[in-house]
Simulated assay, not measured.
Amino acid sequence: MTAAPQTMRAAVYHGAHDVRITEVPRPERRPGEVLLRVLRSGMCGTDATEWKAGPLTFPVDRVHPVTGSTGPMIFGHEFIGEVVEVGTDSSFRTGAVVASGAGVWCGACDRCREGRTNLCRRYYTLGLNAPGGLAEYVSVPEITLVGVPDGLDLDAAGLAQPLAVGLHAARRSGARDGDRVVLIGAGAIGTFVLTGLRHLADVDTTVVDFPGHRLDRAARLGATRTLAVGDDLPARVEAAIGPGGADVVVEASGAPGQLDTAIRLVRDGGTILQVGLPAKRQEVDVHALVMREITVRTTLAHVCGEDLGPALRILADGPLAAELLDSVRPLGDLADQLQRLAEGRLEGKVLFDPQLQEASV
C-alpha cells in the first residue's frame, strides 16, 4: 500500500497580487472532520477582490477570532473532493465524492437554533477565514458535506456551493408564484439567483444587464424576458410587465447606483433583495423607501442544510453547468484567472483541478 503524501501543492495567498503555488504540509484530519482529496475548486468575486485590493477578509495581517488563522492562507471556498480519511463515527466512507458548503457553524448559539446557521455567532468559512480548497487536500468539518449524486459530472458538481448561495438568495427574496421579479445583473451570481428563483416559484422574471452573452444566457436559462440597461429602463420595464412596478427586485450587480434603480423599479409595498456588494458606500433614496413602504432585504452565504443538497440536484437535472462553466484549469493558472475576474473579463465560472499539472513551456 502506497503511503499518503506528507506534502501537497496549494495556492497560498500572501497579499494583493501575491498568490503562490507552493508545497505545504498536507493537513491533518481533526476530530469531526473528513480529509478530502480535492477534485474541483472554484473562485468567486470575493477572491478576486482580495487579489486586487486585499487583504480585506482574509486574516493575513491579523488573527481570526474564531479559527485563530493568521498569515499566508490557502484560499478557495467552492470545492468538491473524494473522501480519503474519516473518523470511526463518520457517516461517509472513503472513496465517496462530496461537496462542501465551506461555511462552518457551531450548532448551539441562538442564531443556529433559529435555523440561520449562516449567521452563527462563531461562523467561519474555509478558504476565507481558515485554510481552504485550492489545494490538493483539505480537512473539512463533516457537517458541511453533502454527497454528490451518482452520475453527476465533477465539473457540474463543482458549482454546487455558489448555486447554494444563489438558492438561499432566492429564498430570502420571498418571491412567490405569480410575482413579477426584476433581476439586475446576469453575471455568475445573478445566474445562480435566476436558477434559484425558477426552482422555488413560478415567477415572471425580467433580467437586466448590458447587451450580449450574459442576457443571451439568461434567456436560455428561463428568464421570461431580458432588457438592456439604459436611462429609459423604468419605462421599458413597465411596458414589459405592466404598470405599478415589480413585486420583487433583486439587485445582483453591485454596480454603483443600482439600489436606487431597484427602488424605481419596485412597486409600492414591494421587496428589494440586495445581493451585490458595491465597492464604495452608496447614497440611497431613503425618502422613497419610507413613503412607499418598500422592504429591503439582504442575503449572506447559504444555509447548508437547506441549500447545498438541492443545489446538487438542480445541477444534476438541468443545463446550468453547461451554460456557466468557462473552463477547468490547473492551479498554476490561478493568478491569471483572478486577474481576468477582477477586471470583469470572465463571463462564466472557472474551476481548478489541483491534480492537473501545468503544461510545460
Rank of each mutant, 00 (worst) to 15 (best):
M1L: 11
P5R: 01
H14M: 02
G15H: 06
D18I: 11
D18T: 08
T22R: 14
E23C: 03
V24N: 07
P25N: 04
R26D: 12
P31L: 11
L35Y: 01
R37L: 04
R37A: 10
R40L: 03
D47Y: 12
T49Q: 11
K52Q: 15
V60W: 00
V66E: 10
G68N: 13
G71K: 08
P72S: 08
M73W: 00
F79A: 14
G81I: 03
V83H: 01
V86N: 01
G87R: 00
D89Y: 01
F92W: 03
R93K: 07
A96K: 02
A99Y: 04
W105G: 13
C106G: 07
G107Q: 04
G107T: 07
C109Y: 00
E114L: 14
L119T: 05
L119G: 01
Y123W: 15
L126I: 05
L126P: 06
N129L: 03
G132M: 07
G133F: 02
A135G: 12
I143E: 14
T144L: 02
T144F: 00
V146W: 00
P149Y: 12
D155V: 06
A157L: 08
Q161A: 12
V165R: 00
L167P: 02
H168A: 01
A169E: 10
A170C: 09
A170I: 12
R172Q: 15
R172H: 13
S173C: 04
S173D: 11
G174A: 04
R180L: 10
V181Y: 09
I184A: 03
I184H: 06
G185F: 07
G185M: 03
A188S: 11
T191I: 01
F192I: 01
V193W: 12
G196F: 12
G196Q: 10
L197V: 10
H199A: 15
L200D: 08
V203G: 02
D209F: 04
P211I: 08
G212A: 09
H213C: 02
R217S: 09
R217D: 05
R217L: 14
A218G: 13
A218Q: 05
A223L: 10
T224M: 10
R225L: 12
R225A: 14
A228R: 07
A228Q: 09
G230V: 11
D231M: 07
D232A: 14
A235Y: 03
G242W: 02
G244R: 08
G245D: 09
G245E: 09
G245W: 13
V249E: 09
A252V: 04
A262K: 08
R264H: 06
R264S: 13
L265S: 00
R267L: 10
D268P: 09
P278F: 04
P278K: 09
P278L: 03
K280R: 13
R281L: 03
E283N: 11
D285W: 00
V286I: 14
H287R: 15
M291W: 11
M291V: 13
I294R: 05
T295A: 12
V296F: 06
T299G: 02
C304G: 06
L308P: 11
L308C: 07
G309K: 05
P310L: 08
L312G: 02
L312N: 05
L312W: 08
P319D: 15
D333I: 01
L334Y: 05
D336M: 01
Q337M: 06
Q339Y: 03
Q339P: 00
A342E: 10
G344K: 10
L346D: 08
G348C: 00
K349W: 04
K349L: 06
L351E: 07
Q355H: 05
L356A: 02
A359M: 10
S360E: 15
V361I: 05
